[in-house]
């Protein structure tokens, strides 16, 4: 195979917070891909009937499952906000270095804020109905 030019190895660059955001976008994306299984499990249990839904509901309301659900919510908040940043880049906006560094901070702030508000509202995702 011919030697093709490669982009410089990661270790060549001085670490910048924008790099952390970049890899976090992938990590949260892959994490949410696994979450699809839970989403479909929830839908399928509802389709299977009342008993199946009650079992699924109890499982998803367990302590460990709640931690996973909150992690999926956090991943969603980040991936959503940073995804909008990516779409802006694709449309040609905010590509300058200083802009990318500033929007990185905006993304983190918005994602944390969205997560806190949603986690508070959903805090007990399978709370007893009022």
């Amino acid at each position: 195979m011919t030697e093709r030019p490669l982009s410089p190895h990661l270790s060549v660059y001085r670490f910048l917070h924008t790099m952390a955001l970049s890899i976090l976008h992938r990590i949260t994306g892959v994490w949410m891909a696994l979450g699809l299984i839970t989403l479909v499990y929830w839908l399928a249990s509802a389709a299977a009937g009342e008993d199946a839904y009650a079992r699924a509901s109890a499982r998803l309301g367990g302590g460990f499952a709640r931690v996973l659900l909150l992690l999926w919510l956090a991943a969603f908040c980040y991936h959503f906000v940073n995804g909008v940043r990516h779409l802006c880049w694709d449309a040609g906006f905010g590509l300058e270095k200083h802009q990318a560094r500033r929007t990185a901070k905006v993304v983190i702030a918005l994602a944390v804020l969205a997560f806190l508000v949603l986690a508070y509202r959903l805090c007990c995702p399978f709370r007893a109905s009022p």
Binding site: A46, E50, A54, S57, G61, R121, R127, P130
Partner: peptide, 22 residues
């Protein structure tokens, strides 16, 4: 963008342990 926001808002309003409602 719109679909996931719609779904999250719906989840917030649903009584999730209530099979009939869901």
């Amino acid at each position: 963008v719109p679909l996931s926001v719609w779904f999250l808002v719906a989840l917030l309003e649903l009584p999730l342990t209530d099979y009939a409602a869901v």
